[in-house]
Design a protein around this nucleic acid. Structure first.
Lengths: 197, 197, 197, 197
DNA sequence: AATGAATGAGAGTTCATTCAT
DNA sequence: AATGAATGAACTCTCATTCAT
């Protein structure tokens, strides 16, 4: 029905308001320093009302992270066409940096918010796992191609992940800085060279 | 008096125990997930006793950060002799990375612990400010030397700070990675080149 | 009207479903451990819908108790024909025990559910009061007959009530125990003798 | 030290006050209808202070129950001398009823307070288990003596427990009634006969 | 110097209940 | 007639902190 659809829309709109309020607060003050009461207040609700939309505080964070990962994944899949491994890695790295630059808040929530609080199992972590799996399979392919020489797969996955994270941190820690495409490429290239040493 | 001295020593020894216990806990579990009770327990005191040495929880964190910055500053001043700006920057960058590698815990506390909790004014932030001032003055010198071309001083200071931070994060986020001196130098060089673009 | 009647039927049918769901939950989990939400869920309604049939949670319990007392009363009145007091008491006692055996759930709700929650005044307690009055008048008759010797009426009423309660508890606390008619009679007889001491 | 002893005494005195306040409230209003706030208030403390003496609400109930069982057990062991099984059972039954009569509040807490809330494992349930074991071993002895004919041990234990409970309920449900020793004996005798049928 | 006792404030969460639709 | 949305009040429990001893 039209009414049913409208209700669904309405519900999503309100979820959105809560998520936005929470995101804003989490980023500015940190997960632990934000209470449900304050999220509710900021979203224009009573504390209890929040629980109609999210079953607890952690779930709000999970939702936000998941949203970030979903957006991230969409972008990363765009680069999937290339079959040449190194080219693919370059593309993925570029995508990673761009995402960090264009969505610094999501990035912060996805990677910097204290992780103990987040449920890494369960439906809401699915997207983040998918992202990591996507990354892993890509790296494995490259390792198998011999590009990094004789290196342990696990080590390569971890090392590259850390490196890419570091790069992105480098970008987001100075948030106002806007880097041109060429800048990103150069930065990426020099890092890849370094990691390949 | 001798007694007075001995008392002072004793006091410092006990402060030390508290700081060590707190540092350990903060790093492993995060500032917010550590209660005063647990710090006290780990240090072998009652919760109330802590307050004879630190006026509140935040102050303990501030002390730890300050200690980190002090150690950092000592190291950075070693590189001060050189008068040639670029060489100085290279040295400073190297020192920065080395410090992050050798003292990842301090580094984490100094730069990654949620900052809202820390009093950035007041005596206990002095050392961190001094570190930043030291860095700033160094960069300003280099900018004036024309090394970075025609660039805004403020932008250069901020950009380099962010870059160096990012590099250190890159290093500490994959903690098991041990980089050789040559690695550090290479990494630094490529980044400096990038920042100079 | 026919429609009116049908509506009334429908209303009662729905009340019934709620009462059944609540009864089931109350007995298995205790009044306080059952929320309106769960009653509604079990009855196939939304929490709010319940309030069209019962004005609050306590009233549901009152209804259930009242139903129990009504059924109980019906049975007790069957034994009313006898005019000989002692025979009457024996019959009533037998009826009491049988009821406790055959409807342990109702019995539990009527006598064991925490009473603070139940409104002892008001319309819904009428039946339970009527039961008690019925019992009282019966005992008074017996006392007047001299069967118990020279005893205070009030004391006799209370003592017998307590005794009968205890007997029924004895029966229901070991629910699997099925007592034959002869067992019940014997049990009753020995207790009556005791109470008559 | 004397001070240490005195402190211990003081601590126990305060625990006592909390236990008494809680016991009073639990009995009058039921476990679920009493909040920690109210216990605290009644004991003259702030809500948080209670937690220095008991780690949660359930533990307060466990303590109270355990106290009851301890007192009960002490009494039951007095009857242990007799070696003749049936005599022993009679003594134990007498002790049971006396206890229920003399300590109706403890009795209510021990047997009538909703059990879901109580931890049946752990140190605080030890005494109640001991009481039950004591009872069980006594019944088993009697069954083995052939007194009840050819009966399943388990059934006998359960049946007698239920019966004794019922008797005690009978006594406590009319609390003001004071029964003489002879009354108790008679009551007991007729019940034993009944159970033996 | 150190502590046990105590507390006010506030955390996340649940509940019975109301009301516009 | 029924519901989804919303709330105020209450819950248990934890925390940083104070203070008399």
């Amino acid at each position: 029905m039209n009414t049913k659809e409208r209700k669904e829309k309405e519900r999503e709109r309100k979820q959105r308001m809560i998520l936005d309020a929470a995101k804003n607060l989490f980023i500015r003050e940190g997960f632990d320093n934000v209470s449900m009461r304050r999220i509710a207040l900021a979203a224009g609700y009573s504390p209890a009302a929040i629980y109609r939309y999210f079953s607890n505080k952690r779930e709000i964070l999970s939702h936000l992270r998941e949203e970030g990962f979903r957006a991230f994944h969409v972008r990363q899949k765009q680069y999937d066409q290339s079959l040449e491994p190194v080219k693919l890695l370059r593309q993925a790295g570029r995508g990673y940096l761009r995402f960090a630059m264009e969505h610094p808040d999501d990035f912060h929530l996805m990677f910097c918010t204290t992780c103990e609080e987040v449920d890494l199992e369960g439906e809401l972590a699915a997207e983040s796992l998918r992202v990591f799996e996507h990354f892993r399979s890509m790296v494995v392919r490259i390792v198998k191609s011999g590009y990094f020489g004789d290196v342990d797969e696990e080590a390569a996955v971890f090392g590259l992940w850390a490196g890419v994270q570091g790069l992105a941190n480098l970008v987001t820690s100075g948030r106002m800085q806007v880097l041109s495409d060429r800048d990103v490429d150069e930065l990426l290239e020099s890092t890849l060279n370094f990691l390949r040493r």
